[in-house]
């Protein structure tokens, strides 16, 4: 994902409306600050609660600052740091490979569908679209992947099923269809083949929408725990979200059935600490890339 030049038109719009701060602008800022806070506060709460003392939480409730500051929740979860680190590794691998391969295959599928002169365009579009709505259900999917594809307890099972997502294909197709045909025609007259056109013209011109869909992929793979629930049994192959999900569910089972006296499990703060561990890196990546991402939507949005 590289920088994309902002269209001149957008810059023009900015230039044209430059003017001094006014009362009405101040009001607008106030409203936006309010909305921004509504988005920010829950995030701050998660962090604050994750550093709070369990007993203090029960008595005082959630606060925007840690009540009785402690890192107990984190030490509890990180009792087994290799496990969490391993899970980060699995998730990173799955996310990176899934996003790159998925984006590539989707783009490859979307491009022909965007071409008016592709004879199978209608049929294949429908073929893609049909999968948006009709699903066979969990059991047959499970049987297919474990018994026919033999992917049980295999990291590929965490990647392959999401590689082609009909929704993304349709968005990409719409976006590709908006590319100026003159460019494509010119390249064709110069004797460029379809593959060459795709790699040299279509992909470079579509960076914004690719960045957007790429982020969708990242979030999807990063946040997924469902595939692991279905297919992964070996703890060393657990992706992060699934590991956290399992820890969280185990916590409440164990708490309800104490045969031995241990330290009380810090359930509430641990829950939030897990959320921090899960979204922390994703948020970091987002903040690093958000310039491109917001612009990707901004430009992609124009084209549906």
């Amino acid at each position: 994902m590289t920088t994309v030049a902002q269209p001149a038109r957008v810059q023009g719009a900015v230039q044209a409306r430059r003017k001094p701060i006014s009362w009405s602008n101040l009001a607008v800022h106030l409203v936006l600050i309010g909305i921004g806070l509504a988005c920010l506060i829950p995030m701050l709460l998660v962090v604050a609660v994750s550093f709070s003392d369990e007993q203090a939480l029960v008595v005082e409730g959630y606060r925007l600052y840690p009540v009785g500051f402690t890192t107990h929740a984190y030490t509890y979860i990180l009792k087994n740091p290799q496990q969490i680190l391993g899970a980060y590794g699995v998730t990173a691998l799955v996310t990176a490979v899934g996003t790159l391969v998925g984006l590539f295959i989707c783009a490859l599928l979307a491009y022909p569908l965007s071409r008016q002169d592709f004879k199978l365009r209608g049929v294949l579009s429908f073929y893609v679209f049909f999968t948006l709505l009709f699903h066979g259900g969990m059991v047959p999917f499970y049987i297919l992947v474990t018994q026919y594809l033999g992917l049980k307890d295999n990291i590929l099972a965490l990647i392959a099923p999401y590689l082609v997502t009909a929704w993304y294909v349709l968005i990409l197709r719409t976006s590709f269809a908006q590319l100026p045909t003159e460019l494509l025609d010119a390249a064709r007259i110069d004797g460029a083949g379809e593959w060459r056109i795709f790699f040299r013209i279509v992909l470079p011109l579509s960076k914004p929408v690719l960045a957007t869909i790429g982020l969708f992929y990242v979030l999807r793979y990063w946040n997924d725990w469902f595939l692991a629930l279905l297919f992964i049994d070996t703890p060393s192959l657990y992706p992060l979200q699934y590991l956290l999900q399992v820890l969280m569910r185990n916590m409440s089972v164990l708490a309800s059935n104490p045969q031995t006296m241990g330290e009380p499990i810090p359930t509430q703060s641990a829950r939030m600490a897990m959320a921090v561990l899960a979204f922390g890196p994703a948020l970091f990546v987002f903040l690093m890339l958000q310039k491109y991402f917001v612009r990707g939507i901004t430009i992609g949005g124009l084209k549906g």
Partner: peptide, 17 residues
């Protein structure tokens, strides 16, 4: 074939017991 071609890193980590 596809996965092998597109993503050398994506090979199965564990053939699975």
């Amino acid at each position: 074939l596809l996965l092998a071609a597109c993503a050398p890193a994506a090979g199965p980590v564990d053939a699975g017991e």
